[in-house]
Design a protein around this nucleic acid. Structure first.
Lengths: 324, 324
DNA sequence: CCATCTAGGTCGGATCCTGGCCTAGATCGC
DNA sequence: GCGATCTAGGCCAGGATCCGACCTAGATGG
């Protein structure tokens, strides 16, 4: 333990100790912090005054611990925990659903800003290991670059990057980032392209070599009020999606449960079948989800999905024929 | 903003402000914290002395921001970010791979300990929404209960719960938790059953109504040195698993990449095929992963997987036949 | 009923903290 | 190049805070 000379440093260490899921007797805390038990009691008081609910169980074998309160206390993580959170957020952000993607992204950007570099390497390694497991998306976005972009948005910093547009041509861009928007299962950066003097939308998974320039610029006004609307209007030109229509031999309630969030539309047909309307961007993802439902189903559209199902079905049957 | 009377409270707020991915001019910080700019400079100094690397850009339009340093600073999260992290950790823990499961679990336990209850509800809601999306596992474990168990392990607290054993019988248990072990894709609790006076292993997904008793007991010694070894020896009686053997028409390198972490064993056969040896606990999971590889393959074992592939293949082909 | 823990009042002396004022150095825009 | 604007940090004096020591009260478990 360090000197713990100042009360501030002591409060921080105290918070860190109390976050461990165990009880600390005052005497042990005093020992660890290098102060008298009386001072520990006063520090506990201070924490309580700051809004952190330190619980104490009285009597012999009593002790202090931090309980759930009204506000989030500062989280004091050790190295491994920090890495675990970074990895978890990365996969969450790379496979966004839910409706808290913006918050996940903010949290990731915040964490990456202060993550020591030696930990950063470990995060990268784990990310590489886990990412390919969830190979649902054809081109999963790099969470690190996403975080860099998010930081640039939040800091109003000019951003430089290489972009590969839909037709394959590569360009260098210098933009003023405005917002990151999740649409479908992809992230888009809405930004003002300073070289082309116009608003542009970039698919984040097509951006590489992001370099925050550090140059802060006053936020520019959008031509339209809602960034998300602006994006969705232009988005479909960038992201070819498939509209699915299928009949599932499964009660609508169960189908909703198994499909989880963002299932698209489900309409009940009768007590044990329903119709699914949805949209997705890769056939593999669609086919896999439908097959994982574990029920009979019929696909009506799109024709590409019908073809893909035939391919997958044939492949499964061939795989099931034992050959030496 | 609050009073910020004491330097400790001020330092915490300052840390929170500096974690935002933007630059803060000293004057604005002074304003927000309700102190003079000189004091802000001193506070910044204090933070630096505590080991938090506050970066400053000089000149006009300069400012302060928190950079990556040697140690993790305390993370100050707003409500949404806290929820996002909790959700991300939950799915990471419920679908464990990687090799940082223990750390993820610790982080989740730490977070849940201090998470305000109103946020806890939101986490539960998001969890329910996202969980069913990744319905790979037959009985996904409840991350919240896992966190409770982890806290009991760390705090040496007796734990009470209801258990449904493999044969379907239900019992109430009172145990002294010793360790949580991840084996295969399942979590097991190694604990001393105080009523049966012996060490037992419980599948966490079969535990319900966990109640930490708050009773702290001195840690008991394991009969064998390594808990993980003890578990793995007994585990296979609890978890029926399938041993897979298959030939993939894919170069070994590519297969490893697409399979990601824990692919089992891959042995290269020739330049564009390889043999896979692995183990998994559900056929659906296995079949889906193999089909997602996007290459031809032949399954040799187990026979159950052959049967399941035939079922899935037939179903896919039936689904691809348009019917009114 | 006693040991052990939290809770908290009081006091004096040492320490620290603050704001004001100063100079120095870096950087950017004009 | 020059001035504006920012960080950096020394110095000082008055006041607030903090600390340990010592005390009593209350809760709890063996």
């Amino acid at each position: 333990m360090d000197a713990m000379s100042t009360p501030s440093a002591r409060l921080l260490s105290l918070l860190s100790l109390l976050q461990t899921p165990r009880e600390w007797p005052g005497s042990e805390l005093a020992d660890r912090l290098g102060v008298s038990p009386r001072t520990v009691r006063r520090d506990v008081d201070r924490l309580r005054e700051l809004g952190y609910p330190v619980e104490a169980s009285m009597g012999a074998a009593g002790g202090y611990r931090l309980a759930a309160g009204k506000a989030m206390p500062p989280l004091l993580l050790d190295d491994e925990e920090a890495v675990a959170i970074a990895v978890a957020l990365s996969t969450a952000v790379g496979k966004p659903v839910s409706g808290i993607e913006q918050a996940s992204l903010r949290a990731l950007a915040k964490l990456e800003q202060v993550l020591p570099s030696r930990l950063r390497h470990r995060v990268g390694a784990f990310r590489a290991a886990t990412e390919s497991l969830f190979t649902e998306s054809a081109t999963p976005v790099d969470p690190h670059e996403l975080a860099v972009a998010a930081a640039a948005v939040a800091g109003h910093e000019r951003l430089r990057f290489a972009y590969q547009s839909g037709d394959g041509s590569r360009t260098r861009r210098l933009v003023e980032p405005h917002r990151l928007v999740l649409a479908g299962r992809r992230w888009y950066l809405l930004a003002y392209d300073t070289e082309r003097d116009d608003w542009r939308i970039f698919r984040v998974d097509r951006m590489t070599r992001l370099q925050p320039t550090g140059v802060r610029v006053p936020p520019r006004e959008l031509p339209e009020k809602d960034a998300a609307a602006f994006v969705t209007r232009r988005m479909y030109s960038l992201a070819p999606t498939y509209e699915v229509r299928a009949t599932l031999r499964l009660p609508a309630a169960q189908a909703a449960e198994r499909l989880g969030a963002a299932p698209g539309e489900l309409r009940s047909i009768d007590e044990n079948s329903c119709e699914l309307h949805g949209r997705a961007d890769t056939l593999e993802w669609l086919a896999s989800r439908l097959l994982m439902l574990g029920c009979e189903f019929q696909v009506h559209e799109p024709p590409e999905l019908l073809a893909h199902l035939r391919v997958v079905g044939d492949r499964a049957l061939r795989a099931a024929v034992p050959r030496p």
